[in-house]
Amino acid sequence: MKKQLEKGLIHIYTGDGKGKTTAAVGQGTRTAGGGYKVLMVQFLKGDDTGEIHSIEKLAPNFSLIRYAPLNNFYKFLSEEEKNATIREVERGIKEIGTYLESEEYNLIILDEIMAVLFNEIVTIKEVVELIEKKPPLVELILTGRNAPEELINLADYVTEMKMIKHPFEKGIYARKGIES
């Protein structure tokens, strides 16, 4: 028999500081370690990062699916690349709805869903509809900068990561094993 959470809530990790995805992966690790099933869905991320390899080691309790993996910012894509990205993200949104309805996973993480909204790849209405499909015993985490007020109002937890200082300001780029 599949384990079930006592109650499923909604988290948002937002802000301009480092750690939104890391916090989501940390919660996923805790949940998977408790014997629950976790699905992390990443949008617009194409880099080979340490979190991918950590998640692989937690299988089958922790799974990762990537939609529209990019190694560049969306705004720098050609029109053709943008259209392909839009199609893949839309496919991902539909599949997430199916995952929510199936209740196969106890925790679903929508990593960088705010970037998808910010870049106007999907509408706020589509994300709200996903949230509304969330069964009562499924936990949902949404990450990314610039969380819209409408989503903040729907959430149970909202954490803002605020950048006070970052090595990028000194010309130190993402380091393997730390930022990537």
Rank of each mutant, 00 (worst) to 15 (best):
F118A: 05
S102P: 15
G92S: 08
R87W: 00
E79Y: 09
L107S: 04
L100T: 05
E79Q: 14
T85Y: 11
A84E: 15
I108Y: 06
E126M: 13
I93A: 05
K82F: 14
E126W: 03
M114V: 02
E80P: 11
N83T: 14
K94Q: 13
L110R: 01
L117Y: 02
F118W: 00
E95Y: 01
G97T: 10
Y99Q: 14
N83A: 15
T98Q: 12
I108F: 06
G97I: 05
V122K: 08
L100V: 09
Y105T: 04
E80D: 15
Y99E: 12
K125P: 01
M114Y: 01
I96M: 02
D111Y: 06
I93G: 04
K94W: 04
R91Y: 10
I121L: 05
E101W: 00
N83L: 14
G97D: 01
A115V: 03
I108S: 06
N83S: 15
I121P: 09
V116K: 07
E95W: 00
I108A: 04
Y105L: 08
E95M: 07
T98Y: 10
K82E: 12
I124N: 04
E80I: 14
T123D: 05
M114W: 00
N119R: 02
E103R: 14
V89C: 10
A115I: 02
I96S: 01
S102N: 13
D111K: 07
E80T: 15
I113G: 02
E95C: 03
T85P: 13
I124S: 04
E88T: 09
I124Q: 11
V89I: 14
E88H: 08
E120Y: 01
F118Y: 07
I113F: 03
A84Q: 15
L110D: 02
E79H: 13
I124F: 01
E80C: 10
S102F: 11
I96G: 04
L110F: 01
I121A: 03
V116T: 08
E103K: 14
I93Y: 00
E101R: 13
I121K: 02
I93P: 07
I109D: 00
E112S: 04
V122D: 00
E104P: 05
E79W: 11
E104C: 08
V116Q: 09
A115D: 12
L117V: 10
I96T: 00
I124E: 09
A84K: 15
S102A: 15
E104W: 06
N106P: 11
E80G: 11
G97N: 04
E95P: 05
I109W: 00
I93Q: 01
R91I: 06
T85W: 10
N83E: 15
Y99I: 05
G92M: 07
R91E: 12
E95D: 12
L107W: 08
M114K: 00
G97S: 05
N119C: 11
T123V: 08
E103Q: 14
E79D: 15
E104F: 13
R91N: 12
R91V: 07
G97P: 09
E120S: 06
I124L: 13
V89K: 09
N83C: 13
I93H: 07
E90W: 05
E95Q: 10
E120G: 00
E90I: 08
I96H: 02
V116I: 02
E104H: 14
A115G: 06
E81R: 08
E126G: 11
I113S: 00
K82T: 14
Y99P: 09
L117A: 02
